[in-house]
Design a protein around this nucleic acid. Structure first.
Lengths: 246, 246
DNA sequence: GCAAAAGTGTTGTCCTTACACCCATGC
DNA sequence: GCATGGGTGTAAGGACAACACTTTTGC
């Protein structure tokens, strides 16, 4: 564990180039991580939010965040928040951006590093302990606490770009999914309508889809085939995989 | 201006949800910014580095960084470092990633946010005051101080991706440049050989090039035409500009 | 039998690639 | 006059976009 600066400073011989002395001269800043946890439901992109517990932001929605612990790196802190809030840990999670406007937090300066996560809202291990924790349709969310509205917008743009580089949409779906569901994910995130035949052709030609012998059930029309995502094929092919363009 | 936390804390009625109290409970962390400043010279991608002044890293190369000042946001801190070291401020500069391994700095925990910058090494206002500040060919740099080798590699990958999204290569060249120079930039960054005719066709069709009536001078062969980058055209076209693929 | 969505191929267009010869300059 | 790189067009192949009819299920 790293001692508070003043404890160490006096024990160190003076030296212009001493590393600890140098670090002690920096103004330390409270750090947090915030997680933008995306899901997909009813053909809409969703985000998991909570009511802010600060009186300044009463009834406003907030991202899921926490302080960064002493000696904890940011990836671990983000994963800890995710696990604590959803019960899930084997989940897509990636650093997006660090936000640092000095007045972004009413309690004083706080710098926050934002992570985005993609998960299946129907996953059996997804448990939302906190009653205040709810899924919201992303384009119905507005007027969030702190600078979280801005952060959410940055993350949506990030996601739009990112799903065209890699087939991340699978993270938002059940293990077994229909092509229609997959297409719905792309249409919702990119805000476009896609041609069904061309979409199917494109994904079929990628070779990342494994045909299960199962069909959708409980639909009120002709059921579609269910597929799984072939992670092994993907790992092998992604070196020469340049993107998904629509 | 935001007061140091302890000054304010005592003036506030105790409240479980009080913002300042909450922030005061966070462990503050020393923050720095590091700038990966890319240039282009002799057909190679270059990076501006300095000798580390820490005895732990004697004679090792280091990125240009500095602590983040109280009440300064990260973008401003990065711009300040850039200006201080190069004399330039009207320069492409973008946040890339935040690095936070607890042991990445020998003086104790320091979290650093890394920015990448692209500039013209021949620009008249580029002044390297410090004699220890030198341009290095990126693929000859190894064994840097701190985790800076890792950071550099992340930034190179970032740049390879980024120049295929937007025509950033212009930032590395003089205002007037030949198509050969432009092609050299892409070839050096992407580590590929490109077909000259196809390259010229592609850029001509984008419409971002203004033909000057000037020619290269002081070349030992047939001189090429010089072009300028049309920022206005680019701003107008980039809304429906999807990328540069090679 | 009707509503609703699944499944399936072909064609034209556009973009990308591959490729070779003459030209202007310095020496 | 020769070495060096600048400048240019075309043809073939591959990717993408547009498009309609038949099938399966629930009700």
């Amino acid at each position: 564990m790293i001692e508070p600066n003043h404890v160490i400073a006096n024990n160190i011989a003076m030296d212009n180039n001493d590393a600890q002395e140098l670090v002690n001269s920096y103004t330390p800043v409270p750090l947090t991580v915030d997680c933008v946890i995306f899901g997909f439901n009813q053909n809409s992109l969703m985000v998991l939010l909570i009511k802010s517990d600060l009186k300044e932001y009463q009834d406003k929605l907030s991202l899921l965040g926490d302080k960064v612990h002493a000696n904890e790196d940011l990836d671990s802190a983000a994963l800890r928040v995710l696990k604590q809030r959803t019960g899930m840990s084997d989940v897509f999670l990636e650093q997006v951006h660090t936000f640092s406007k000095p007045d972004r937090h009413p309690g004083g300066r706080v710098v926050t590093t934002v992570y985005a996560s993609l998960l299946n809202t129907k996953h059996h291990s997804l448990l939302l302990h906190d009653n205040e924790l709810k899924w919201h349709t992303v384009n119905q969310v507005n007027d969030m606490a702190f600078d979280h509205q801005l952060i959410l917008e940055v993350c949506i743009k990030w996601l739009q770009k990112r799903i065209q580089e890699q087939p991340l949409a699978f993270n938002l779906l059940p293990v077994k999914f229909s092509l229609r569901q997959l297409q719905n994910v792309y249409e919702a995130i990119l805000n476009v309508k896609l041609d069904r035949r061309n979409f199917r052709k494109k994904f079929a030609s990628m070779g990342f889809l494994n045909d299960t012998d199962e069909m959708e059930t409980e639909v009120t029309h002709r059921p579609g085939k269910l597929y799984t995502f072939d992670f092994i094929q993907y790992q092998q092919k992604k070196k020469n995989f340049m993107g998904i363009d629509f």
